[in-house]
Design a protein around this nucleic acid. Structure first.
Length: 854
DNA sequence: GCAAGGTC
């Protein structure tokens, strides 16, 4: 039996189909799919791995004592790896050297001293995909020939080499060979299997060098940063060859913004309209788009101030074509999806699920050129029958020439990301459908003609001053019929001719300032990483996500936190190599040499270890400075405002007793100012105007609910801007039926800030209703016609909103368009609306909201 | 409690 080992299941299946005499049979070994087939009567089996099946790691004996964590203490009080194997320590760090004594000292402060040992620690490969390895070994035992058919690239060679090492453990003598194909098509694959070669160990070693260097630098620097000032569990401060330069890009942009000196300029703008037709109003501006000289701007303005008429002096029309977009690869899909509000990491998760469900092609590709073998018409036909919304445009595409656009990158391993045309999009959830439609529409757009946009430019004379107005109209939609993403709205100008008089109004002189360079969006950052050679199509999204997770980055567009800036600054000073993309490009050079046999893995890795070791003395010497910088940055990130009592910083804190968070003063215990944290929202400080509440002097904060509009409130729940005196909204029905008198009163919890209505006889009737978190309440004195509960009015940003307070009311109307969380909350109350257990219980609301917002 | 690279 011949065993074929592919990098992934789909490749194993495809290879089986392409090589088999007839149809391959799907079989299972343990729980993994394999494909059995015959080639010229001989039995073959193919299986897919799941990428790397082994992961590099330090051996357990140098992983440091498990109980002690990342360091351990010898009997002499010496802090060392739990057991230093022979030959582990290299100059200038040898085992005889005592880094320090821990007796009588707080050991925590000394942990980084063991890092030189880690720098020289040996690295082994540990099983990462145990199930796959089990299957691999099971099949290898029965095989008389093993063929490695992983992807034809450096990582593929390494994955194949790891697989061979597993095979060798159970079948040391089985002959092995390597099939190299660069596209999963008949010609390529059969040629590869007709011309088997042997595994390129140099290429695999090059890949393994990358693994080792990434692990050593990542582990040593991450532990260093984490331990320099230990911030408690869950506060890892990571560093790495790709993530740190990526973070540095964001920090650099932020620094440019901070160093930016805005320049003043002036604009004169107004509104024009065809005479007597105010409905044709259009914007116009002075022909000098930006006056840099204030006096000149004022002079020009003095001529036109209060003008009511103007004259068209020229009309010019020019049409331009917008070319259809190129096919999607991973980066361009991530960028386009990011513009639609889906982060690169989420895009990849959704794309993976669409791929697994058969809706789209393989999502990790660099290629932007459809292969000739792709059945484009078949896919369009499939889309047409499965997606009614796309049917008309599909029919148009089918009737056209269907000449696809081409991008710059052409590889043959996978086609660009495209819909398969199969599957009913109605079965997809919201995020999946949104991404699927983007991919499907993009695909159609690449088969269509350009869009034509007609630009009209009016030159206007107003009291001797030249003005212009410009309008863009899409006259021929072309590919835009399929792909409306990022399309500007038409700006239509009224039909006017030279010499026509127009009405003019609202001419204003506006003082403006030039803007600093924009922050990166997640889509832009992915593109920038690609440009600088940082990460791969498969890793960039997750690396950005990681930077958010360790709280180096925040918001979108991306801002670095104080912590992120402190990390970059510290590493830039003491380990600059890790902060720039050059480490990656030099690593690439090294790997090229190893792959070519001009250098060895041992030499390259050792050299890298030495570079890191050379930085450690300085890093360790500056541990306290760095720890302080990190601690200060973390405090600055936690700041939500300034204490009205003592002027120190108010920060987010966690109560040691209840583990709940609250806002407290850094001046504690001298100053006892605390505030509750509004629940269910992300809190951030307000800078500049509006930072301090004019009513009570407490800071105002910005609250960002999940997927809802952010709002600003005073942090003080007792502030008149938050506090509403208890409001009687009606009479309690339950009490009335029981012959008691109970009044329904609106309350606001001082602790959580939550609002609710409760009966004055709550202990007896248990009647309580949740209320919306915000908006001034008014009693109406009315009762609901459906359920008899009181009706109140809530003043919202969108105007007054009348509601029956009973969330379980049968006549419940849909709320005016607001966030989903609020709808979820309303639903949550409905479970047992108006009874003690549900409505009043804070947990109930939260769970329900979670369910619907997921 | 570490990285980055595959893929699920």
């Amino acid at each position: 039996m011949k065993l074929v080992i592919a990098e992934k299941n789909i490749a194993a299946q495809k290879i089986a189909q392409l090589l088999a005499d007839g149809k391959p049979k799907t079989d299972k070994v343990y729980n993994t799919q394999v494909y059995r087939f015959t080639v010229q009567g001989e039995d073959w089996v193919s299986m897919g791995l799941a990428g790397h099946i082994l992961a590099p790691d330090f051996p357990d004996e140098v992983l440091f004592d498990k109980k002690q964590g990342w360091y351990s203490v010898t009997e002499d009080g010496e802090v060392l790896p739990a057991d230093v194997p022979d030959g582990l320590a290299r100059p200038p760090y040898d085992t005889k050297r005592k880094p320090f004594l821990a007796n009588g000292i707080n050991i925590k402060g000394w942990k980084v001293e063991s890092l030189p040992y880690l720098t020289w620690a040996p690295i082994i490969k540990k099983p990462a995909e145990k199930e796959i390895i089990r299957v691999l070994k099971n099949l290898a035992k029965k095989a008389d020939h093993v063929i490695i058919a992983t992807d034809f690239d450096r990582e593929g060679e390494l994955i194949g080499s790891d697989a061979l090492n597993c095979v060798r453990e159970v079948a040391p003598d089985v002959p092995t060979s390597r099939a190299r194909y660069s596209a999963l098509i008949k010609g390529e694959v059969t040629a590869a299997f007709d011309n088997l070669v042997s595994l390129d160990q140099d290429l695999a070693d090059a890949g393994e060098s990358r693994q080792y260097i990434d692990l050593i630098w990542g582990a040593v620097l991450t532990r260093y940063l984490t331990l320099a000032r230990f911030g408690g569990f869950g506060n890892v401060r990571s560093a790495g060859r790709v993530q740190t330069p990526t973070l540095a890009l964001v920090v650099e942009r932020e620094r440019e913004r901070m160093a930016f000196v805005p320049e003043d300029y002036w604009q004169i703008r107004g509104v024009g309209a065809a005479q007597g037709k105010p409905e044709t109003a259009f914007k116009m501006s002075h022909a000098t788009a930006r006056f840099t000289d204030k006096a000149a701007a004022e002079t020009a303005f003095s001529h036109v101030d209060g003008a009511t008429t103007g004259t068209i002096t020229a009309v010019s029309k020019r049409s331009r074509k917008q070319q259809p977009p190129t096919p999607f690869n991973t980066t361009s899909l991530q960028a386009a999806a990011a513009a639609e509000g889906i982060s690169p990491a989420r895009t990849m998760r959704i794309a993976e699920s669409l791929y697994m469900a058969g809706f789209i092609s393989y999502p990790r590709v660099d290629n932007t050129v459809y292969p000739r073998t792709l059945d484009i018409a078949g896919i369009v036909g499939g889309l047409s029958s499965n997606s009614p919304a796309l049917r008309p445009v599909c029919q148009k595409v089918l009737a056209g020439p269907m000449k696809p656009t081409r991008g710059k990158t052409e590889t043959t391993d996978h086609p660009p990301i495209h819909p398969t045309g199969q599957g009913d999009p109605e079965t997809l959830d919201g995020g999946q459908k949104k991404l699927y439609m983007l991919i499907a529409r993009r695909f159609l757009a690449t088969l269509m003609g350009p869009a034509t946009i007609e630009n009209t430019k009016l030159s206007i004379d107003v009291s001797g001053e030249p003005f212009t107005a410009s309008g863009d109209v899409l006259v021929d939609a072309g590919f835009r019929e399929a792909y409306p993403y990022g399309l500007k709205r038409d700006e239509q100008l009224p039909p006017l001719a030279e010499g026509d008089a127009i009405d003019v109004s609202d001419i204003k002189l506006e003082a403006k300032q030039t803007e600093p360079p924009a922050r990166y969006s997640q889509g832009r950052l992915v593109q920038e990483m690609e440009k600088r050679g940082l990460g791969t199509k498969s890793t960039r999204a997750s690396i950005i996500e990681r930077l958010y997770q360790v709280r180096y980055l925040k918001n979108d567009p991306i801002e670095p936190s104080q912590l992120g800036m402190a990390i970059v600054d510290a590493l830039h000073e003491f380990a600059p190599r890790i902060t720039t993309p050059e480490m990656t490009s030099e690593l690439e050079d090294d790997m090229t040499h190893v792959a070519a046999g001009a250098d060895t893995q041992e030499h390259v890795v050792e050299h890298s270890r030495a570079l890191l070791a050379g930085m450690l003395d300085t890093l360790i010497a500056h541990k306290d400075d760095l720890g302080e910088a990190i601690a200060d940055a973390v405090t600055a990130d936690a700041k939500v405002g300034t204490c009205p009592k003592c002027g120190k910083d108010l920060v987010m804190k966690t109560s040691a007793k209840t583990r709940g968070s609250f806002i407290g003063c850094m001046g504690w215990p001298e100053c006892d100012v605390t505030y509750p944290v509004p629940s269910g929202v992300k809190v951030s400080p307000i800078e500049g105007e509006g930072a301090v509440c004019p009513e009570c002097g407490a800071p105002r904060i910005k609250c960002q609910p999940f997927r809802q509009k952010a709002y600003e409130v005073c942090v003080n729940p007792k502030c008149p801007t938050n506090f509403e005196p208890d409001l009687v909204v009606g009479e309690c029905r339950v009490c009335a039926e029981a012959g008691r008198h109970g009044e329904l009163v609106a309350h606001k919890s001082e602790r959580s800030g939550k609002r609710f209505i409760r009966c004055t006889n709550y202990d007896e009737c248990g009647v309580s209703y949740p209320l919306p978190a915000r908006g001034k309440l008014e009693a109406t004195g009315e009762v609901c016609e459906h359920c008899g509960a009181p009706v109140v009015v809530v003043q919202t940003a969108r105007g007054p909103w009348r509601i029956c307070v009973n969330m379980d009311c049968p006549g419940k109307e849909k709320k005016p368009a607001r966030g989903r969380g609020a709808r979820g909350a309303a639903k949550g109350g409905s479970a047992k609306g108006g009874t003690r257990k549900s409505a009043a219980k804070p947990g109930a609301k939260k769970t329900a909201a979670k369910k619907t917002t997921k």
